[in-house]
């Protein structure tokens, strides 16, 4: 379970939390403790269930957030002929990764959970304890801000 779903949980932690290593361990600690309550025959898949635990936990940690360096390491292996294209895409992705870190917490959660982890807006709203319209609004502001940041770095 840890090996299969670890990368997804790690992705949430490193994008949404300044201490991703700690958050990652805490989330698994909670998940392992709650595992007997997971119903494999239920409507939620294990991935969905784990993501919900992670989402809730990261909201809890939000208040303790502090700034730290963000490492964006992208291993691209272009041949010299394709270097231009690869660099363009690598640069764009790297800027996007950094731009996400500059979003307000709640906006960043909306973007990461919806766009990167495919969580429906309704589910995000439910876990966040707000209306769907609020999540939509956060998402639009976040995308607008990302666009501004990306245009600024072009």
């Amino acid at each position: 379970m840890v090996r299969e779903h670890g990368p997804a949980i790690w992705g949430l932690c490193r994008r949404l939390c300044p201490e991703p290593e700690d958050a990652y361990q805490e989330i698994w600690e909670k998940a392992l403790a709650a595992l007997p309550r997971f119903d494999p025959a239920g409507t939620a898949s294990l991935r969905t269930w784990l993501t919900t635990i992670a989402h809730r936990h990261l909201i809890d940690r939000d208040r303790r957030r502090r700034t730290r360096g963000i490492v964006v390491s992208l291993g691209e292996r272009p041949d010299p002929a394709g270097l231009d294209e690869s660099l363009d895409r690598t640069r764009r992705i790297a800027h996007l990764e950094c731009a996400i870190q500059r979003l307000p917490e709640a906006h960043r959660r909306a973007v990461v959970l919806h766009h990167l982890h495919g969580r429906p807006l309704e589910v995000i709203a439910q876990v966040e304890g707000v209306a769907v319209g609020t999540i939509k609004s956060r998402l639009h502001r976040a995308r607008a801000r990302l666009t501004e940041l990306l245009l600024g770095s072009a």
Binding site: G69, I70, V71, S73, E76, D79, L83, Q101
Partner: peptide, 11 residues
């Protein structure tokens, strides 16, 4: 064969 990796650290 040329391999390139980029890293940006931003605080």
């Amino acid at each position: 064969g040329l391999s390139v990796a980029m890293s940006m650290v931003d605080n």
